[in-house]
Amino acid sequence: MDQSSTVKLHELRLPSRNAKKQRTMISFPVGKLVSFIILTVFCIIWISPFIFLFTVSLRNQTDAMLYPKEILYPHSGYSFESYEIILLGKYPETSEQHITTGVTWRDLVPWILNSCGVAIGGTIIHVLVAAFAAYAFTFLDFKYRNVLFTFLIFTMVIPGAATTLGNQTTIFGLKWNKVPLVGLILPGIGGVYGMYLIKTFFSGIPKDLIESAKMDGYSDFKIFFKIVLPLGKTVLLVQGLFGFMGGWNDLIWPQMLYGADVKRKDLWTLQVGMAYLLGKFRSSNTIGVSLAGGVICIVPVLIVYLFAANKIVEGMASAGVKR
């Protein structure tokens, strides 16, 4: 046989099985493009309220209603007119209506302080109480523990709004609607959800650690502060953030407590104050003023998020994962 014409089978180049696949890979990825477009559209729809919020708050009264065609570039340019109206009560000369709100930037200071008090103070107390309760339910053995816990979980079924009126009656009876903060913070510190979240995390801590420390002579308080808290700080941070958001954004409860009393504006939180202001600027050409109020409300929360973003994401992830 002629040597040159022989072909060993394994030298034969078989058509690649992946050839077809590779070709499609190189060609235009239609599927990816479609999904990219869909996602982008949804993304824009989702963030459009924020864009709207920021841009419209920076317009003149005359431009206020000229959206969507001039959503990013109003023809008379950006101005801080709305902020001036809401903070300083200073209206532009062209303005036809002058609404007297009786509120200046000086009133904003107690509002922000009150909001901070509720959000930070309330959160710290709540997290502490919840962590104590979670520790007891996880590591201490006492009578009727399971019964109590089931009862607490059951209370989560009851919507918050159902108990608000009762709380209001109590607080009014105690005259705490004349005192700053106390009435705002107290009803919230026994929240079950936070306790449940923290307990779930604590259950993941090996019991041996606690027993070992007990044998070494540590009391429950010491164990809580030296072992359980350092291990559970991520979940406490997450719960703290939830608490902060809840406290900062809450409108109904502060409104019920202090909203009716216009003379004691110094007791209001930022949300109550803004709601009051927005009520004044209801006409369509003052929409910018309303939105400026919204921006003032979300800026502190954004700042908190920017500082704590890393920790929060990490905490959210680890809170769900058992050790």
Partner: peptide
Amino acid sequence: SMVFQSYA
């Protein structure tokens, strides 16, 4: 004093 299986 005690040594635990999980070391604790």
